[in-house]
Every structure is written in C-alpha cells, then in structure tokens.
Amino acid sequence: MVAGDEDILAVEGLSLSFGGAVAFAEIDLSVAAGEIHAIIGPNGAGKSSLINAITGLYAPQAGRLRIGDARFARVPARRLAELGVARTFQNLALFKSLSVVENVLSGLANVQRAGLTAQLLGLSAARREATEHRARAESVIDFLQLGMFRGRAAGSLPYGLQKRVELARALVANPRLLLLDEPMAGMSAAEKAEMSGFVLAAREMLGTAIVLIEHDIGVVMRLSDRITVLDHGRRIATGTPHEIQANPAVIAAYLGAEDDPENEAKAA
C-alpha cells in the first residue's frame, strides 16, 4: 500500500487521541485522483475523527498527511479550499439563514477576488465575478435538482434536502478531493438511491476523488472503488469491495458487533 504520486491524498501513520482516549492510531490511507474511497467501521471506530483530522479540525499527535503536493503534520483548515478540498459534515453545517443559492455561492468564498470597494461600488470586475459565480452556483443547483428551493432559507428545508444543499456547496468549487461524512444518514431508501446517483455523477463530471463515510453497506459496495475498514481506531483492511467482503478480519469485526446495523455486511 505504498502511496503513489498520482494519489490526491496520502495519510501516513496518523494518530489522534483525546486525553487518554484513542480516536485512531497509525492510520495509512491513500486516495487516488477520481477514486471513490469508502471508510467503514462500527460506531466509534474513528471514521469521523479521521475526516476531521484530514480537514484540520483536529490536530493529530503523530503521522503525516499529503494533499496534492502539500505535506502537513496538521492541515490548516483555512487553506483547505485553496488546496482543492471540500467536505460535508455528519451533522449539517449549513448557513441556516442564508438561501440555498447563497449557501452554494458561499462555496466559492475561496475564489472571491473582487475587493470590498469594488463590491460596494458595483465596479465591473465585481459584477463580472458575481455573474460568473451565480452561473456556477445555478449549474450545481440544477445538477442536484434544487432549483425549486433556490430562494428558500437553507434552515427551513427538510433534512434530506439540507444534505443535498451541503453537497452542492461542496461541489460548486470543483474540488479535486471531496470528503462526505455520512451524506445519506437518516435518509429513506429512495433518497439514498438519489444521493448515490448524485455522488457518482459528481465523480463522472468533475473527476473528483471522494472519501465517503457511510453506514449502509449496500450503498458502500455499489459506489466504492476501494474500501478502508476501521475498527477501534485501527485500520484492519483496505481493498476493493470484493476483497473486503471476503476478508476474515472484517467479517470478525462485524460479527463482533452484533447489535450494530452493519451486520448487513456479512449478508452483502
């Protein structure tokens, strides 16, 4: 599992603990350009913590990260967008009082160039940029079929739509790496199928590499090129969906957690 140069993300020996509690330890992970890489594991396996460490919200104690050509011990969160990384959150993190369009537009905050004076005076540079950004936002809104909600305050939308707005905000910047933390949690089967379609289409259209945390093993098997399995903060396996299904360590981990919904893994 040597990280290749074409990998967009390489995580080497990353460890994080809170006080004495280990969130994850010595994690290696590599994500190739355009790959959909799922991270699965029982609750508390460290999946979300790993994504939060990759996006600079948590400071890992050991290990290294590479995003594109940039190497870090800790990723500065404020530079993420500039590095071409976007993410969604397990618990929604929308700008609730802003409209859907404004939320999507805010995904372009990093490429705003017109200065405040140009914005206030409505200089042509600011107007041209506003028109261009609006067009980009509208095309993502059309793509995710959010058109009829574009003027609504994001916080007033039902949960599933809010998840979709968050995806739109992440996609509008054409990221080369997109991290989705349970984008389908709490969705109905129909909504999951729809969301899966959007994730695949986003990869198709933008060539975005996607790191996906998801509990629904059926969805994971259908979407992923590769899967990494975490258990108690350790990586126990990485491989294609086929390899993962046959991996004894993975089966043991999932059989061990009997009251966990991921028991479907052995059936899948």
Binding site: T55, L57, A77, R78, L80, A81, E82, A86, R87, F89, A93, L94, F95, K96, S97, L98, E102, L105, S106, G107, L108, A109, N110, V111, Q112, A114, L116, Q119, L120, A126, A130, H133, R169, A173
Partner: peptide
C-alpha cells in the same frame, strides 16, 4: 455583497465558513 454573505456565514457556522475559504 459577497462580503455581506461571509458575515452571515461566520455567524451561522464559523467552522463551515472557514472550510469553504471565508
């Protein structure tokens, strides 16, 4: 303006605002 939008973004969710590059 986009700057005004950034103000509200920081109010509504500072972490998300930082992540999108505000």
């Amino acid at each position: 303006s986009p700057t005004g939008r950034n103000l509200v973004a920081i109010r509504d969710h500072e972490t998300a605002a930082r992540i999108v590059g505000v």
